[in-house]
Design a protein around this nucleic acid. Sequence first.
DNA 1: GTATCATTCCG
DNA 2: GGAATGATA
Length: 480
Amino acid sequence: MATSLDLIWIRQDLRLHDNPAIFHGGGRPSLLVFTLGDFPEEQKTELARAWLHAALKSFANDLDHRYKAKMIFYPGTLLEFLDSVKPLVDIKKVHWNHSYTPAGIERDTLYQAALSERGLEVEAHAGNLLHEPWDIHGKNHAFIEHFSPFQRLYFDQLSHRTSLDYPAHVKTEIVKGVNYGTLKELKLISNQKRYDDLLDYWDISEKAGRDLLKAFVKDRLQHFDDSCEIPSVQATSKLSPYIAWGQISVRWIWETCDNQGGGEDAKTFLNQLLWREFAYYSLFHNPQLLQEPFSKDFERYPFRSDAGRLEAWKTGQTGYPLIDAGMRELKQTGWIHNRIRLVVSSFLVKNLGISWQEGAAYFLEHSIDADLALNTVNWQLVTGCGVDSYPFSRILNPVSQGEKFDPEGIYVSHWVPELRNLPEKWIHQPWNAPIDVLKRAGVEMGANYPRPVVDFQESRSWALDAFHAMNGNDEIYGTG
DNA sequence: GTATCATTCCG
DNA sequence: GGAATGATA
C-alpha cells in the first residue's frame, strides 16, 4: 500500500522562516517539491535563472542542515509531478502560498480544480504579502486609487498578524521509486561567467537576507530619511531581490522595523514596502495593468519605438551621465538605486519618447529583483498613466537630479569612469564644459563619451505638447 | 549685470 | 519636481 503524505509545493517563497506552507505542511510526513515547469516564461531570463539556482541551492542546504529534510527538483509542472508519483504515494493534501500575479492566480485556480477532481485537498496560505489584496477595500468596497489612504490603512487601522517562527519539523519522507532529481538537472545556469559575477555582488541565501535586514536596521535605518536618495551611499536595504524571491518574509521586515519605535525613518522605509503591497493590490484588482495604462487616455499618447535610442539607453550611452551611470549599474549588477530608477524611467518615456512597456520589459529582464507587479506599477507611476501616479509634467531633469543627489559626482565617476576626472561643476553636463576642461579631464565628446542623444529641453517640450494634444487641448497649445 | 536663492505656478 | 519669475546681495 502506498504511503499517505502531504505535499508542500515551493514556488517564489524560498525560505523556512515565516513560510506558512512549510509551517503548516511540515508537521506531517510530506514531500516538498519545486517544479520549474510552473515558472512563467518571463521569469526564465538568464539572470533570474542564475539567482534561482543559487537560491534553490542554499534552500536545499538549509532544509538538510536544519531538518534533515530533502526537497525534490522537478523540471515539469506540478500536475505532471503528481501523475509521475501517483503509483508510489498517496497524496492527500497540497500546501502552497498564494500567488498574486494574474498568471499565477489563473494557474492556481486551474490547479485547485484539477486537484479536487483527483480527490486532493488544497491548503493555500497567505505568505508573501502583509495582507491579501482581496481583503483590502476602500469605502463602499471601492478600489483604493490613492496611496495615501492605502498607507494610512496599514499604519493605523489594520492589525498585522505576527510572523511564524521556523517550523518545529519538516518531516519529508524518502519514498522508494520517487526521483528526487538534482538542482543540476534543472539546467538553470546558461552562462557560468554571469553566474560567477552575480555571486560577487550578492550572497544568495535566506540567511544573507535576514542578516542584511539586521545590519540595515542596526546601522542604516535611523539615517534612512537623509540618505536613501543618495546613490553613491549604501543607504538602502538592498533587500529587494530577497523579497522578490520570497527569501525573506515581508511580515518579518515589517515587524522588525515597526519595533524600532516607529520613527520617521522607519515609516519612510516601510512606505517602500507598502508601495510593493499597493502594487500587488492594484494589479489584483486591475489585471489589465500589465499591458494597459490605468488612464486610458494614454493609449493615444504617441510613443514611438526607436531602436537606436533604446539601445543607447540600455547600454548607458545616452550622453547624460546620471542616466548612463544608472543603466550601467543595472546592466552590471542587476540592481539599480531607486532614485536613479525614477530618473532613467522618466528619461526613456518622456525624453526618448519610448513606451513604458518597452522600459518595463527591459527592467524585468535585467533586474535581479524583477517583480512583475511593482515593476509595472512603478513604470506607470513615472509615466503618469498609472494608479496615483506622478503628473505627466514631472519630467526629471538628469542634470539637476544629478546635482541634487550626486553633488560630487561620486556615483557617476564610479559607473562612467571616462568622466571621473571632470570637475563637479561639469560632471553632470559634460557637453557644456569648456573645451580645455574636457581636454584636461581626458574627455572627448563624441569620441570616448557620447554627445546627448536628445536635447533635454527640446524633448521635454515635445512631450508636453504631445501630452496636451492627447488631452484634446491642441487648439490651445498648438501642435507645431 | 549676474549669480544665487526663495516663491509661485503647474499638475 | 521643474521652470519661470521675483528678490537679494
